[in-house]
């Protein structure tokens, strides 16, 4: 659906427009014609001013792409939904945004103690703590973003059924809010660098690119789950525990590359997070970039996003009554 400010000349939006003749044809021959009264009161000024700009909306196709025009017009709302998510998140907690640090920190502790020490995975890795931290931080971002985005539609049921705005904003805002937490979490990484007496290198410049791709992937998985959960609440549980399984299936978080065999290295990049995390760490603490993994993971991430988008658009049409 499209809403427009008056006076803004509109093009017919890119959806199936119904042929005029066809509509009239239906009207005149329709069996229910009696009940379909055309109300056209003789009206003052408006009706006769040439051909006014019109927006015609018909039932739209499943493959229709995002209405970027509309997203742009509502952009302030996106900003505020994100701000709301950030502000509200820790409102009733004592530690407040310190939770953004506690979460990755405790995960790092578990990995370092149980995997690194007891499991012996730390052998041969210099500064395993920093190594794990550089993997856990982006993973935490990814996982939080996906879980929040996945639950965003059902969590905002009233907004969805009572008002109109581009629905993708809800999952988008969740990704944005998680990104904010991630930025807070980065202070841990800075601290780690200071403690280890390390310097950053110019490869750091690649990190934002990788993070951008990670955010896009998180958005893609998030909208896919958001739509799946609307259709079937069971996916809520699939999501929560699936993210845990996903973490362990992304071994680059806790395992150095030389401990992963060649076959695994060939296939793992199909997991979109794998290649991104691997190269994020390389950008931060140095090491060789695995561009093949980066490329493959990006492609598989984009594939997931397109699937997510397609399914989201499909569910979006009937969202207000199926939610």
């Amino acid at each position: 659906m499209v809403r427009e400010s008056a006076g803004v000349p509109l093009a017919v939006h890119g959806r199936d427009t119904v042929d005029n003749d066809q509509v009239h044809d239906q009207e005149s021959t329709h069996p229910r014609q009696k009940s379909a009264i055309v109300i056209a009161l003789p009206d003052s000024d408006a009706s006769s001013c040439g051909s006014p700009p019109t927006t015609r909306i018909v039932a739209r196709s499943h493959w229709g792409f995002a209405d970027l025009h509309e997203i742009w017009r509502y952009r302030e709302l996106l900003y505020f939904l994100t701000a709301r998510d950030i502000k509200i998140r820790y409102k009733q907690t004592i530690l407040g945004s310190a939770w953004a640090i506690m979460q990755p920190l405790s995960a790092v502790l578990v990995f370092v103690i149980f995997f690194g020490r007891l499991g012996g995975l730390a052998d041969g890795v210099d500064n395993y703590t920093l190594f794990v931290l550089a993997g856990v931080l982006p993973w935490t971002f990814f996982s939080n973003a996906v879980i929040a985005a996945g639950n965003s539609l059902v969590g905002n049921e009233r907004l969805v059924t009572k008002t109109y705005f581009p629905r993708v904003f809800l999952p988008m805002a969740c990704v944005g809010a998680s990104a904010f937490d991630f930025l807070i979490g980065l202070s841990l990484l800075a601290l780690g660098f200071v403690l280890a007496g390390m310097m950053v290198s110019s490869s750091l410049l690649l990190a934002p690119l990788v993070l951008g791709l990670l955010a896009i992937t998180a958005f893609g998985v998030g909208i896919l789950f958001a739509a799946l959960i609307v259709a079937q609440r069971d996916f809520r549980h699939v999501l929560t525990f699936g993210m845990q399984l996903w973490m362990f299936s992304t071994p680059c978080i806790y395992l150095s590359a030389d401990k992963i065999g060649p076959t695994a290295q060939a296939w793992l990049p199909l997991n979109p997070v794998y290649g991104l995390l691997l190269n994020f760490r390389a950008a931060i603490i140095g090491g060789t970039f695995d561009l093949r993994a980066l490329g493959l993971s990006t492609l598989s991430g984009l594939a997931i996003m397109l699937t997510g988008f397609w399914y989201f658009r499909r569910v979006e049409r009937t969202l207000a009554d199926t939610i």
């Binding site: 008056a6 119904v18 006014p52 019109t54 039932a59 109109y164």
Partner: peptide, 20 residues
């Protein structure tokens, strides 16, 4: 009219800033 439900068939045209 507000755009919450898209029509199943037919066309809907609304011009102007909507407040519901």
């Amino acid at each position: 009219l507000a755009g919450i439900y898209p029509p199943t068939s037919g066309t809907k045209t609304v011009e102007g800033k909507i407040c519901s």
